[in-house]
Nucleic acid binder design. Structure first.
Lengths: 118, 118
DNA sequence: TTCGGTAGTTCAAGACTTTCGAACTATTGA
DNA sequence: TCAATAGTTCGAAAGTCTTGAACTACCGAA
């Protein structure tokens, strides 16, 4: 009979996400204050389905930097990540965040669109 | 006759504020992402009149740190500062910011009030 | 009119963060 | 089974934050 494996290999460990009530406004603002991360969030928010890391991040961003930014976004409670075989798909936690901080994410995304085109 | 003084003493130089159209969303989010600065902005926003630096900042914050945070807020376009004798009075640039980034500041301030009480 | 207190600035050093290359782990498809 | 793909971890270099110390400017009292 299969002995329970105490430690899952690193690349199989499920991601940990904060409960929505533990998400802080400051961590959300902090996460969005970085231009690269705002870019990522915009890309995820703009699409209709969850995106893997590489396609959500700016084209030439080193992978180690990508990993770091996705971790910050995840720990801030902005995105939910799930492993799908070799890739990680990421979705914005829109509805939850809207309930917790009404208007915040929506107004920021809207403002960032307008600001973008110059 | 009074010779024009080329350089005003440091402590008399007027503050420089960015024009509202040069304010970027990222600099605003960056400025608000710091808990101390969010605290300061909340205090300024909550009052009915402009506040000097010492009374807008958390009680035990070292003055050099205060100075730094007010500079960040000013350069981000969030506050307008003016010298009044020995002190500096600070006001939120509410109306201008609301026009440039509708809902952003308002929703953040609102969310921060709710979050505060725990 | 000078002196003490108050308000804020500047500078430099130590602590903390960010970024990124290199080496690694898992999974998939040929 | 092997190469390619997707992401993680580590450590070092570069960058940013925080703070004490020394400073400037202004104000009010004696």
């Amino acid at each position: 009979m299969g002995v329970a494996r105490a430690y899952l290999p690193v690349m199989q460990r499920p991601f940990v996400h904060p409960a929505v009530e533990d998400v802080t406004l400051e961590s959300v603002l902090y996460a969005l204050a970085d231009p690269t991360r705002l870019e990522i969030v915009k890309k995820i928010a703009g699409g209709t389905c969850a995106l893997n890391c590489s396609s959500a991040a700016p084209a030439d961003l080193p992978k180690s930097t990508q990993s770091h930014h996705f971790q910050v976004l995840r720990e801030a409670g902005l995105i939910r990540s799930e492993r799908r075989g070799t890739e990680v798909v990421n979705a914005l936690r829109c509805a939850e965040l809207e309930k917790r901080f009404p208007g915040v994410i929506a107004s920021i995304l809207k403002a960032s669109e307008k600001t973008k085109k110059r």
